[in-house]
Design a protein around this nucleic acid. Structure first.
Lengths: 156, 156
DNA sequence: TCTTGACCTGAAGTTAGGTTGAGGTTTTAG
DNA sequence: CTAAAACCTCAACCTAACTTCAGGTCAAGA
């Protein structure tokens, strides 16, 4: 599948097609997300599949993946290189799970918040709002009741 | 409500109570989120209400507010200073709306992704996944069809 | 009193994801 | 052939939200 001469794209053309800034595309190259060839003058020459590859990068970013997450995803492709339809089917299923998880976490937070709206105690242990991921679930100092100024304020 | 001597807390005590790092608490002070007094030796002395105030900061951060957002919220309090129950009722209602919005955005993205799972075209215009906030809704260059390598690939 | 632990300031470093600028080369249109 | 547009590299800068460090001060217990 070596592309014919006309299929090569300059960085400017890639930028125009994807909507990315040229500087961003060059940055992605330093992060190993694309690997264009060079022409005799040293300028980058992209294949058309790189548009698809960069589209994947943009979509994955919207889904909250970091650059290195994305790098990992792309490196893990059985076929390496640019994602195919089949790759995409697999990855998008995984992405969907991520979204579902995020939604679930937000719903949990919403419900906790709802339970606290009338309260106002702002107790860090009671509200549990400040650590939706249950960070520091058993991180020293024992059970702390962080009640601000009024330890006897009604809760709910 | 000037606190009695025993109600003053050192920065280390505040850190222990809130779970925040001392450096973070000092940083929040530079950002105007807390304003402790000083003792004769120049050391910070906090009131008990500052625990509540910092709890609010942590909760708001979990909800995605930036430091300056939080600063704005705190400054906008009618009663100024530390949030009371009534303040909290108002703000938490607003917070809840933010969460609902985030959930709605994610659900939209999930549905779009669902429609794309079998496809694999990764077309930036068709999938619309890469811009859930409809960024660049009409940002020059006219309608672009970003089809990667095969402009005739079937979509869905 | 002495020592140790807690605290102070200000500057610099950190991570992520890029952008901007300087100074120079290549490509392309006329 | 020439001028302008596009491209190149490398280094420095940017924001957010902190952390770390160096060098010095304060407070509390034996």
């Amino acid at each position: 599948m070596t592309p014919s001469r006309d299929d090569w794209l300059s960085i400017g053309q890639i930028a125009e097609r994807t909507g990315l800034a040229i500087s961003a595309i060059r940055y992605y190259e330093t992060q190993g997300l694309v690997a264009p060839d060079r022409n005799s003058g040293g300028q980058r020459r992209y294949r058309r599949t790189d548009i698809r590859r960069l589209s994947f990068v943009m979509i994955a970013q919207q889904l909250g993946l970091s650059i290195s997450d994305i790098h990992a995803q792309l490196s893990a492709l059985p076929s390496a290189r640019t994602p195919t339809q089949k790759d995409w089917r697999l990855m998008s299923t995984d992405f969907r799970r991520r979204i579902e998880d995020q939604i679930a976490a937000l719903e949990l937070m919403r419900d906790r918040l709802y339970g606290c709206i009338g309260c106002g105690c702002l107790s860090l242990t009671n509200c549990a709002l400040y650590n939706p991921e249950d960070r520091a679930s058993a991180k020293g100092a024992g059970p702390r009741y962080l009640l601000g100024d009024d330890p006897n304020a009604p809760h709910i």
